[in-house]
Design a protein around this nucleic acid. Structure first.
Lengths: 249, 249
DNA sequence: CGTTCTCTTGACTCATCTCAAATCTGGTGG
DNA sequence: CCACCAGATTTGAGATGAGTCAAGAGAACG
């Protein structure tokens, strides 16, 4: 397990789980948590490991506890598009689904809180707190998928890179519990290839746009994976992200 | 009202509504339907009318009864991306949402079964059939949004056009209750501009690809809005849609 | 019949991709 | 400690798919 990751005992109970208040279980109270406790188990996957293969039987349903995984689809000739990024507390699977529609790949070491599928399907049917939480999470994902459609369909390569950097910056500030602002330094959690798949670009274009943003002074690159943003508003501007009316988000 | 649309009385009750078995109310039984009946009203919008403005207060929550509407987002400089197509039975709105994240525009004349927002929010909280249906519909939408991400990020202009034609063909076959197959003839329900916004292209490119597919014999164009597909599998092939393993879908 | 809107086509530009090679990095074994 | 290797990243040169700008052809409408 990476050393900068919360220590988790395999016997951990839901009550002291790090994603307790953001995951599918967020709206549950004690009695419901106990039922979840009964049907869950933790499993870890290595960096690079494919957790689920698209087109094959859906082998699990559960939540990411730590690590980053990607959701992606491919065309027959190998062109690949990432369709989602799974961060801690995000949910994998759909109640009642038999065949997986996407590949799920661990980019880091990933721990998943897995539920036994048939048990979970029963549980969700008579646990409104669980179902409502899943609805809210699914609607949030739908909103981000649509935001991503705007990026994929209409943004330039430079805007795409700036946009993904904003996302990484936000994620990092959230993890560190620090504020977004100037001088922010964070790690790029994906390879250039994964970013290319995420943004609908080639890895060469990703690399070139990093260089271009560096040359323009929008970012400072310590190395390929460590970025400092001298002027956060400038970065937001490069992303053409008009969702916020000028507020730092 | 267009003449080829089901006749709908404004006093129609849920029991004989054309979208009764596919909309948000699909899982409801008589008593629940009656409660919906109480808080609903039908409203029609003209072709071209903007039903909801992104960034403004969400003025309604409800279902499309007939007609086609589009969901779209724009960047500050006017670049526009469609993020969803609303067909009969599709749901508009999110319980509890105050600000609309997308523009909703009627392409046809559209009728919407509207619910009073606060009443609907109350109702969904104690009507599991309603909530479960909304969850299923939202998950379906998430799947199609992700499918669309693959198209936007990785398909060529020609593949994009072929893909959207497959969608129109399916929709038409479904409406007509006819089978998909060779010699299929259908109407293109969107302008070239709307298709461009849908596919992340310009209208010129859309037009050129129509011409190219015509020249290759993949489609026959009676006029700009009426297409015949001599060989349906060929069209599927042009779309590079590998989701089905060769079955006609 | 103009008028207006949608659609098509042409000529040219440019952003991104493709193919290829160089550089950097971390890890391995001698 | 150093030489070597594999994988990740960067950079260059040239090709190309889609965009831009502009004009013309249909179709719909009053």
């Amino acid at each position: 397990m990476p050393h900068n990751v919360p220590k988790i005992s395999i016997n951990m109970s839901c009550g002291n789980c790090p994603i307790r208040h953001r995951a599918i279980c967020a709206y549950c109270e004690e009695p419901e948590l106990e039922r979840l406790d009964d049907i869950k188990s933790y499993k870890t996957y290595q960096a690079g490991e494919t957790i689920v293969w698209a087109g094959e039987e859906m082998p699990l349903i559960g939540s990411v506890v730590y690590g980053v995984a990607t959701l992606s689809r491919s065309l027959a000739d190998g062109r690949r598009q990432m369709v989602g990024l799974l961060l801690p507390s995000d949910f994998i699977g759909r109640p009642g689904r038999k065949v997986a529609p996407y590949d799920v790949v661990a980019t880091n070491e990933v721990m998943i809180c897995q539920f036994r599928a048939n048990k979970f399907n029963e549980l969700i049917d008579d646990t409104p707190a669980l179902e409502r939480r899943l609805l809210d999470m699914t609607m949030d994902e739908l909103d981000s998928a649509r935001e991503w459609m705007l990026l994929l369909g209409r943004k330039t390569a430079r805007e795409k890179i700036a946009s993904v950097l904003v996302i990484f910056a936000r994620r990092d500030a959230h993890l560190q519990d620090s504020k977004l602002g100037n001088g922010l330094r964070f790690e790029v959690p994906l390879t250039r290839e994964a970013m290319a798949d995420y943004l609908g670009l080639t890895i060469e274009t990703v690399s070139r746009q990093f260089s271009a943003l560096k040359k323009s002074g929008v970012i400072v690159m310590e190395d390929a994976r460590h970025i400092t943003v001298p002027d956060y508003v400038r970065l937001l501007d490069e992303a053409s992200d008009d969702s916020d009316g000028g507020f730092i988000t």
